[in-house]
Design a protein around this nucleic acid. Structure first.
Lengths: 199, 199
DNA sequence: GTCTATATTGCGATAGAC
DNA sequence: GTCTATCGCAATATAGAC
């Protein structure tokens, strides 16, 4: 019943609050720059409480980056056509659209170089923004082989992805009243990324 | 004599090697994600040796970010005219030109959100990339008052600065044989930043 | 100028009461 | 589900020999 769902919401509330607080701090200070204590203090609970909900600090990060990563992965696994500027634009729009359920903070976390560097290992982010850059650069060069990518295309794609992240990050700071990942903002992000990529 | 200069070079060599190694690691793993031990191991010396050359870990960071920060500050203190697109383009070119003596690693360090957040305090970076973004956004809005900046201009300026950082970072990765901050690369950076800013 | 050895603090993580 | 208390360890930083 409605009472039950309310109770369930309460029950999982702390977990969600941990993720919200942690993602904000990770985005602001980086992963290594944020301690478990920082997170628990910001929430007004003890460290031990966090460890009831998550097995480790890495586990918290995993839960945060999981959504944006699988969103991006999901679009990439469709192996879309990237042969034209219009197709690439659609691809970018799909990526942003897939991330619409993510919070901007969970995306901003990827600015931390350390998080991007957590390759393959336990957290299989595998430098998701790098993967994105290389994919787009490969499309510009018309090859799937990273070794054959034209250097300038790699530079351009990296700039486009970095700019996209910056827009996501700055948007809700510049427009505090706007819904996060609104239609307006996603269109703007796609425009920006596409313009840099196809310049 | 030439022998003396060679000896002098030897003498200061370790300090420079520390900075080179540290900036590379900071850029790769972030500041908090890099320990003194990481740096000393990479250099093949002990931690104590580092503390002979630098008073603290913060001190190492300070020495690294000092050059790019004063380069940017130096250009900004000229209070250049930013009233037209051409003037802003010249301003960007001046900034990049002033950074020509810096290593790309020392610039890439600014990707770490923690380093950017070290505001005012001891290390007075005061979010130098944010300052740059706000300056450019203010120019677009035709105001010096941050409160009067149009939100869209802030978003655009942030994207431009982030893209510029990405180009600096990716360039020598994409063109390993090119001299860092060569004429060709600086022109490309200016073009990229300017195009995004004036879009 | 670099080393070994150590002081000290704060971190991630766990045990067990409530 | 949250608490107090604590363990083990890695981090920054220092002292003093060479």
């Amino acid at each position: 019943m409605s009472t039950d769902t309310a109770v369930d919401a309460r029950r999982t509330d702390t977990r969600e609050r941990i993720l919200a607080t942690a993602s904000g701090l990770f985005a602001e200070r980086g992963f290594a720059g944020t301690s478990i204590r920082d997170i628990s203090d910001a929430l007004g609970v003890t460290k031990a409480a966090l460890y009831y909900h998550f097995a480790s600090k890495d586990d918290i990060l995993r839960a945060i980056v999981d959504q944006p990563i699988s969103a991006i992965r999901g679009v990439m696994e469709l192996e879309p056509d990237l042969g034209s500027a219009a197709a690439r634009r659609q691809f970018i729009a799909d990526i942003i659209g897939a991330m619409a359920d993510c919070t901007p903070e969970s995306v901003a976390v990827f600015k931390d170089p350390q998080i991007q560097a957590m390759v393959g290992a336990e957290i299989s982010a595998s430098g998701i923004t790098n993967v994105l850059s290389i994919t787009l650069a490969g499309a510009l060069s018309g090859t799937a082989d990273p070794a054959q990518i034209e250097p300038e295309h790699l530079v351009r794609a990296s700039a486009a992805v970095a700019a996209g992240l910056a827009v996501i990050d700055t948007w809700h700071l510049a427009f505090p009243d706007t819904a996060k990942f609104s239609e307006e903002s996603t269109a703007y992000i796609v425009d920006t990324v596409s313009a840099i990529l196809e310049r």
